[in-house]
Design a protein around this nucleic acid. Sequence first.
DNA 1: GCAAGGTC
Length: 631
Amino acid sequence: MIVLCVAEKPSISKSITNILSGGQFQTRSTRSNIIKNYDFSYPHSRANFTVTCVAGHVLQHDFAQSHRKWHSCDPFELFDAPIVTEVAPDKKAIADNLTAEALKAQQLMIWTDCDREGENIGAEIVKICRRVKPGIIVKRARFSAIISQQIHHAAQHPVELDYFQASAVEARIILDLRIGAAFTRMQTRTLQPLFQQITGVVSYGPCQFPTLGFVVSRFDQVQAFQPEKFWYIYLALCHDVTGNKEETPFTWSRGHLFDFSVAYALYVGVLEDKMARVTKVTKKNTKKWKPLPLTTVELQKSGSRLLKLSPKKILDIAEHLYQQGFVSYPRTETDQFDPQFDLASLIAKQVADLAWGAFASSLRDGGGFSQPRRGKNNDQAHPPIHPTAHAGNLTGDEKRVYEFITRRFLACCSKDALGFETTVEVEYGGEDFFAKGLIILERNYLEVYPYDKWNGKELPDFEEGATFVPSVCELRDGTTTKPSLLTEADLVGIMDKNGIGTDATIAQHIDTIIDREYVIPRMEGSVKYLVPSTFGIGLANGYNDIGFDRSLSKPQLRRETERNMVAVCQGTKTKNDMIVEAVEQYKDMYIKAKTNFAKVISSVRSHIDRDSRPGEGGNDRNGGPRPGGNN
DNA sequence: GCAAGGTC
């Protein structure tokens, strides 16, 4: 018997082959230069295995020819127009390989990633194979990590494909297409003739619009910001340490107050006292936790913050490093290492490095090793991102991304930084103040992870019950600071939290709203801020003005889609019900949007016009203030 | 010329 195993991508088919064959296999090339077929016998199942793969989705959904041209129909018809499913043009060789191999096999075993998309891709593979071999037996291998014992178990105890999950994804695909195309064509066809500035597509998408919404919403907060004055009592003691005057400042436990008369009354009360009393001195061990194992979203967030590269660029570089075999698969939600994961040999590979080799060897030989922290997420398909080989010849940004991934990994495998914290509490005139000191005892992971800062702060000795005359006691004032515009790192975090996009697509959505000129990046020093263009503000505000209870530029609608997908996965809702309900809902919104589109037009007009008034900087679609600082 | 999700 021949069993045809199909994985979601080349790396997995290779790993599965290595494990199941014990290294004894033949390789055949295919018409696709990224895909290989591997043959070997698998005595446990008394079968010959052929392992191959696809590269993500093979099928593509689009409207039938009758509705494909932009002016072929009223965009509203796209909510019901026929949709055809066909092999994507660039996946022809992959599909042909599947059918050719299926013809030789009696059983088809699906080895795609064990997530919703994987289940849907599995269903695509089944569909393609059954076109040429309707009777082929279909099984599903279920695995949660690419480790020998699990892969053998999956091969020997296959389950059934989960068509609920596959249907949930199918529903999302169809809805995104209908909604995206209908609104995009409507917006573009309405706005383009009215504004010479609008030359490209005015796209709408259920992920890109909420993404734009986040940028506009922060921009509005910055615009609406009114600085507020506050007051606080500043208390300090000067020590004469061998002639050097050193001031120890104390923080008021009330923080600061916005009411001057209250702050002033308290201050006057304080001044009546002559001496401050040390009420409590607390000394305790403290630690600064090492970072969690690295996920895709975290790589993009901290990478763009620390390395000043765009999230998309970081992911592209990580992908390339992966292709070269330097790092593990870069798209993962997992922030915990499997207990059986062989960390030691990966650490050993880094001993050769000039910069962090000594640290790696201290982990390996010097007892510096500590099991990584376990986060809460596991996608059951890929481990956290880690270096898989030592790379000594990288340059430029590739080198910096590899260095970050490697230092992060070594930091995860070392110990938390240890310190000793002293808190001195003081009472003066009925008010409480405190000061904190920190002595760093062991830097541990900080030695290899310079991206985290932890500074010690010396505090003179204070004894409980002691009294002193403060050197400084003043009522000082300050003002609240303007919030900053969003950085790409901020936006990645907000999208992740709101479930907009996935780890692999978040960066793409950000690029899309920049490509469409809804948002314009602006450099302020080395930090890149995202500023909505006048056009983007006009669109987002225009839709807000229409008064949907769940605006098209807010995240709720996408959250509903997600909830419905979960219901379809659980079998409490059918794919058709989900599609019909959502289509009805969006049809209503479309009609409402179209009849009230004058509001969007006037909102876009007022913003673009404001921008192109003579003498005010031309019509580069860019408006708004300079990014606010954080201090 | 439309979407978002896989993958390269």
